[in-house]
Design a protein around this nucleic acid. Structure first.
Lengths: 171, 171
DNA sequence: CGGAGATGATTGACATGTCAATTATGTTGC
DNA sequence: GCAACATAATTGACATGTCAATCATCTCCG
């Protein structure tokens, strides 16, 4: 009988997958908890403040900012609303396109980022850099690149038929 | 002058860190989107259904379930509320401890899990297992184990002084 | 027994994320 | 000019996550 190519992971592969994805999730959540308790900000806040700090003075259009940190615009919009309420950023009207918004760091936002940055980088060092050997760091970079390239490929070629899960309005 | 041990990542280490964490995040979110579009469920739903399916018939105490999938109980409680509304699980009173809840799979929940499982495993194969060489898979397992062990160590020894970020009620 | 504290689970308040719809303004071609 | 379409950004509705507080029951020990 014709043997189809195996389509499902072996149990060993699955075990590694679960370890991998759960561990990276724990890592993220530990970093987030530390950022919150050390600096009263979320990883999202940090990402926004970092991008704006790098833009140095000039501020960024909302879409540029979204592209820089890889967020959907609606997510960014909601997040900026919260950050603005806390006084970390300001939205100004864009001179060259009146639809646009120019996002700028407030003095308070710049200060909060400066204070958050060192402890955050130290935590990354403790939980990632120092935990791994140089070879392991290299392996992490290699994995990231490989997985990223597969993800990009998968997104270029959207998958065929969304296997129909029957919404069944009443049929 | 005394030279302290370097405490911050180098820029190369930081680049790898960002690639790594952003890629794992993309991977998670792509899997979540596929699970949603293929099977109308979230990764959380899947985790709960998987644990209950493995428990096979008997159902699980809410805390056992929480421990199995590594969630806080409050998170699980909220999630079970949503799943119960959708008819995927049922909460029954526990015979031996009237404080407790016994979580059981409904027929609908078991069915939904069966239908979701194959496409989900296929996606894991496509985006993770097939993307990587055997060596890379092994490296992923190794990384996960190493990082996990560091995380566990860090949580055993809670960090000293939460570096005080001045809440300043009015002082 | 019976009350103090531990344990199981839920709840409420709120931050964060996604999706689809909306608003406002720009751009293009007739 | 202006209708049709594209683009920038926001909004609303709702799912998900965290934290602290609460409620009910159990356990233990005087």
């Amino acid at each position: 009988m014709t043997q189809r190519r195996r389509q499902l992971p072996t149990s060993e592969e699955l075990r590694i997958w679960r370890d991998f994805i759960e561990t990276t999730e724990s890592l993220r959540s530990e970093l987030a908890a530390r950022l919150q308790s050390d600096s009263s900000m979320s990883p999202g806040d940090y990402a926004v403040l970092l991008a704006l700090s790098d833009a140095d003075g000039r501020g960024l259009r909302s879409s540029e900012l979204a592209a820089t940190i890889g967020w959907e615009r609606s997510r960014l919009s909601h997040h900026l609303g919260r950050m603005e309420r806390r006084g970390l950023v300001r939205r100004e009207n864009c001179a060259t396109d009146s639809r646009g918004a120019e996002i700028v760091l407030t003095a308070e936002g710049a200060d909060a980022f400066r204070k958050a940055s060192i402890p955050h980088l130290r935590a990354i060092r403790e939980l990632f850099v120092d935990a791994l050997s140089p070879d392991q760091i290299a392996a992490a970079g290699d994995l990231a690149a490989t997985l990223r390239s597969r993800l990009d490929k998968a997104r270029e070629q959207p998958r065929a038929r969304p296997p129909r899960v029957e919404v069944n309005e009443d049929s």
